[in-house]
């Protein structure tokens, strides 16, 4: 179980607002954070990852406390068991596909999981290539594999498909579903694409003006 109680003053396009979120994510749940841009979706993700410090609140993941403002507790991202996929791919340009994955493993860990994941993302043939020759879809598959290699407690996806064309997006969505079915890790997807949310997530939260305006099954949600 992941508990999030976050409070943070942010500045949006229409001036400053307060982000206030109180959420519980069940183990293995695929949850989407949906909403207009500037609503604070990515901020929630970044606070969970440890890249942004909330003004107040609590983050508990399983038995671990990652953040607790009342005790002044704040774990840096390195100490949090997270996997993160960025919109901008963020593969290391100086490393091959294989080395990008190997970099994710702790020293001395078995490399069997690299081969397994390369097969899953169907990129075994390109493992010695540098990222800059890959297509956007291929890059994002490598980024996804890199993020789940350490078997994190939570997988964070920050608009991972929004830079891809429709066809690639469909393929990546299938892959995300496969990965989630196979590894079952709790997943938080940030997206402004309702169709994508409905295809992938089992639960969605609509974030509007800094607070959650809807929390339920994506299929039951209707715009307006």
């Amino acid at each position: 179980m992941i508990h999030l109680q976050l409070k943070k003053n942010l500045s949006g396009a229409d001036g400053p607002f307060t982000l206030e979120v109180d959420l519980a994510i069940a183990k293995g749940e695929f949850m989407a954070l949906y909403g207009p841009s500037g609503a604070g979706k990515t901020s929630v993700l970044r606070m969970l990852a440890g890249f942004m410090r909330p003004d107040a609140g609590l983050i508990r993941v399983g038995n671990e406390t990652w953040f607790q403002s009342s005790k002044g507790l704040y774990l840096p991202p390195q100490k949090r068991s997270i996997g993160m996929v960025f919109q901008a791919y963020s593969l290391f340009p100086n490393m091959s596909v294989y080395e990008n994955l190997a970099f994710a493993l702790p020293k001395g860990a078995s490399t069997d999981s690299i081969r397994e994941l390369l097969a899953l993302i169907e990129l075994e043939g390109l493992q010695d290539k540098r990222p800059h020759i890959l297509s956007g879809g291929q890059k994002q598959r490598v980024a996804l594999a890199r993020a789940i290699l350490r078997k994190p407690d939570i997988l964070l996806l920050d608009e991972p498909l929004s830079a891809l064309d429709t066809k690639m997006r469909g393929k990546l969505q299938d892959m995300l579903r496969t990965v989630h079915a196979r590894y079952g890790m709790s997943t938080l997807l940030v997206s402004h694409d309702l169709l994508e949310v409905q295809r992938l997530a089992s639960r969605m939260c609509l974030l509007e003006g800094g607070s959650i305006a809807y929390d339920g099954a994506p299929g039951d949600f209707h715009l307006g």
């Binding site: 990852a49 890249f51 840096p76 390195q78 100490k79 901008a88 593969l91 290391f92 350490r150």
Partner: peptide, 12 residues
Amino acid sequence: TLVEAAYALGKS
């Protein structure tokens, strides 16, 4: 984001 990607992988 490259720095953040490394931090998210637990790198100091």
